[in-house]
């Protein structure tokens, strides 16, 4: 199972690095409890919108692929997008809305 979760991390890393402008700033960390894996994706503040997408569509698509892998392994996996709140709030309103919708969707998928 350890191998499989490493793969989930790699998958998210690969996707994120392929769609941002600063791939070198992409960091994925894992937090594992008994049967739940939390992947935290951190990107350059300017790339936050790219990994979330309009109405959280990009993040949602990444979660869908993660779910396929998690179900097969019989574990639960969550994806969180970590962003520096101060920097995010300085961005345009569109980004703020994306952050909000992101929070909503992550709440939905937590069940």
């Amino acid at each position: 199972m350890v191998e499989e979760t490493n793969n989930m991390k790699e998958l998210i890393e690969y996707i994120a690095k392929s769609i941002v402008n600063k791939p070198e700033a992409v960091v994925v960390t894992e937090e594992q409890s008994s049967e739940r894996l939390i992947l935290k994706l951190q990107v350059d503040p300017e790339d936050t919108g790219r990994v979330i997408g309009k109405q959280g569509r990009v993040a949602q698509a990444m979660r869908t692929l993660l779910r396929v892998m998690a179900v097969r392994e019989g574990i639960r996996a969550n994806l969180e997008i970590v962003s520096d709140q101060e920097i995010v709030s300085d961005q345009e309103i569109v980004s703020d809305q994306e952050i909000v919708s992101e929070a909503e969707t992550s709440h939905e998928t937590s069940e």
Binding site: I15, V58, A61
Partner: peptide, 12 residues
């Protein structure tokens, strides 16, 4: 799942 795969592939 196929839609998600296609969307991410398109973005990449």
């Amino acid at each position: 799942t196929l839609s998600s795969l296609q969307y991410l592939a398109y973005l990449i």
